[in-house]
């Protein structure tokens, strides 16, 4: 089925969207004094208590912020990078007191763990992996999956973390004969991992055995789609992909996310929901994040748009604030907050 045959989510006019769906909670004013490259939320343990902290990253500094009260944040740790710039934060669920970051110039060259010494609480870095890293994702149970190399010499590795940030266990997954572009853990089926490839396939692995279970070619209209989430229910796989290259049409508007349903037994797939912008909104997908059933995207127009995948329509639009376009959007891993970053480095925290 092509994109044109997919059911389109309702496209309410911008005026009908409830702005109350997003409430500003607090703000980090230009925390790094330079352009932000990423933001994330994680748990950090101090004096025996776990606190929900914010991690901000610019090219040469990663900072950890702890809450002073419901409105204010205090910078408690800073890691500096003088040789290779920071590209992104890699959140790893179930891990406390450890931040993973990817470093490189355009291409990812290193993955590092950032942590603090237990003795003097000083910041330190541990090199976890180096090479031609194509894709990576933090997984449940303190694991990180990464792929290095291209199709003929591709290596897909799972690292499990020890408390001190070092890798305590390494396991290889069977590589497909296509270069992996993105990974997604499958909610609802423990030990299933999904990947998308550069030539339009979806692959599934068994994380426990390392087996490559299935390679499924999907319609060419999903060319080089990035997978943001996967759910397994009643024998079917529901996969959320973004559509950075999708063409705008009069009937469908500007598609940003798409929900595919795949039967992993037969490798047949169909698009079931197309998340397009409300009427009157322009822009294409720039970057985005999906958590449970809500999908958020920064658009080329500088606006952030949010869709509820269960309701099937756009539920909130966040236009640029103070004439500053949005450049980052992330769901918090610690609560139902949305972290929104501006080009000048300001970070805003909204309750959704």
């Amino acid at each position: 089925h092509s994109t044109e045959q997919t059911e389109t989510a309702d496209r309410p006019a911008c005026d009908n969207l409830n702005p109350g769906n997003l409430q500003l909670v607090s703000e980090l004013k230009n925390p790094s004094s330079s352009c932000s490259v990423d933001v994330s939320a994680m748990w950090w343990e101090r004096a025996g208590a776990k606190e929900p902290c914010i991690v901000t990253a610019c090219e040469d500094v990663v900072s950890l912020w702890k809450p002073l009260n419901s409105l204010q944040w205090e910078k408690v740790h800073t890691w500096h990078f003088t040789e290779v710039p920071v590209l992104q934060i890699v959140p790893v669920p179930d891990v406390y007191n450890l931040i993973c970051v990817a470093l490189g110039s355009l291409e990812i060259r290193e993955i590092r763990a950032l942590l603090c010494s237990s003795g003097d609480d000083s910041e330190k870095q541990v090199l976890l992996k180096s090479g031609d890293i194509k894709a990576m994702l933090g997984l449940t149970k303190r694991r990180l999956v990464s792929s290095t190399g291209t199709f003929c010499n591709q290596q897909i590795q799972i690292m499990t973390f020890a408390d001190d940030g070092s890798s305590k266990d390494e396991q290889l997954l069977m590589p497909p004969d296509e270069t992996v572009l993105t990974f997604a853990e499958v909610q609802g089926t423990q030990e299933a991992l999904l990947g998308t490839t550069t030539v339009n396939s979806i692959v599934i692995w068994n994380l426990k055995t390392g087996q490559l279970l299935k390679k499924m070619h999907i319609d060419d209209s999903y060319q080089a789609s990035v997978c943001h989430g996967a759910y397994s229910e009643k024998g079917l796989l529901f996969v959320v992909v973004s559509q950075p290259c999708a063409k705008e049409s009069q009937a469908l508007g500007s598609p940003v996310f798409q929900l595919l349903v795949i039967n992993p037994k037969t490798a047949q797939s169909v698009g079931v929901l197309l998340c397009s912008l409300p009427q009157g909104q322009a822009g294409r997908f720039l970057e985005g994040d999906v958590k449970d059933h809500v999908a958020a995207a920064v658009l080329t127009s500088g606006t952030i748009a949010i869709w509820d995948l269960l309701l099937g329509h756009c539920t909130a639009l966040l236009p640029p604030v103070s004439d500053q376009s949005w450049s980052l959007v992330k769901w918090s891993g610690t609560d139902s907050h949305l972290l929104a970053g501006q080009k000048d480095g300001n970070i805003f925290i909204y309750r959704y």
Partner: peptide
């Protein structure tokens, strides 16, 4: 949207594919 076109569905797809795939 009908899922009839997707072929027979198995609730145990993960276990079945794991037993069929090469180790």
């Amino acid at each position: 949207c009908s899922t009839a076109d997707l072929g027979p569905i198995s609730l145990n797809w993960f276990e079945e594919l794991s037993s069929e795939a090469p180790p």
